[in-house]
């Protein structure tokens, strides 16, 4: 079988798997999509955090960049793992105790100001937006290879899938 056929098969199987899981866990959580409160085991949450963390950038680009940069590529390796030490020691336990849902919530309450909440919100949007832009480029590159189209067409396809 050709690479293209295999790609359709394997990508198809994994997508069906995700949809099934999403459907099954959707049925369980009737109280709404955003509810975070408590039921996820540390192990499952650790796995999900890892998937969340390993982005298109780290999957596709990082080894390539290290390959061209040599030692200097360590910035990505150290930076994207060492930050978890800061997160685990300085932020995660306390924000969990605080218990509200978003970062602007913490900033708004801790600094007793709607303006602070707004600034935090603006920062959150700028940061997440920059991050999403990089991801969509990554999806575009994968599509461009596996459907044998131009990268830009791949980006447009990626946008459609992400929105769906």
């Amino acid at each position: 079988m050709s690479i293209l056929t295999w790609t359709y098969i394997i990508v198809g199987i994994t997508f069906i798997l995700y949809l099934c899981i999403a459907w099954v866990s959707m049925v369980k959580t009737t109280s709404g999509f955003y509810v975070a409160g408590g039921g996820v085991s540390p192990l499952a949450n650790g796995l999900a955090t890892a998937a969340d963390w390993i982005s298109a950038a780290s999957f596709i680009s990082m080894a390539g960049l290290i390959s061209f940069m040599g030692y200097a590529g360590s910035i990505y390796l150290l930076g994207w793992t060492g930050g978890y030490v800061l997160l685990a020691l300085l932020l995660a336990p306390y924000l969990r105790k605080f218990g509200k849902f978003t970062v602007p919530d913490f900033v708004g309450d801790r600094y007793y100001s709607d303006f602070a909440r707004f600034v935090a919100l603006l920062c959150a949007i700028i940061v997440s937006f920059t991050y999403v832009a990089g991801q969509i480029r990554g999806v575009g590159i994968i599509f461009s290879r596996f459907l044998e189209v131009d990268v830009n067409t791949g980006v447009l396809l990626g946008m459609a899938i992400v929105f769906f």
Partner: peptide, 28 residues
């Protein structure tokens, strides 16, 4: 990494503070 909103909110999904610490360990 430690300041990214989508990483921080993950630690609200676990049942306790201790679970949040352990979960960070598993994640890494």
């Amino acid at each position: 990494t430690a300041g990214l909103p989508h990483v921080i909110i993950r630690f609200y999904s676990v049942p306790s503070v201790r679970a949040a610490r352990l979960s960070a360990g598993y994640a890494l």
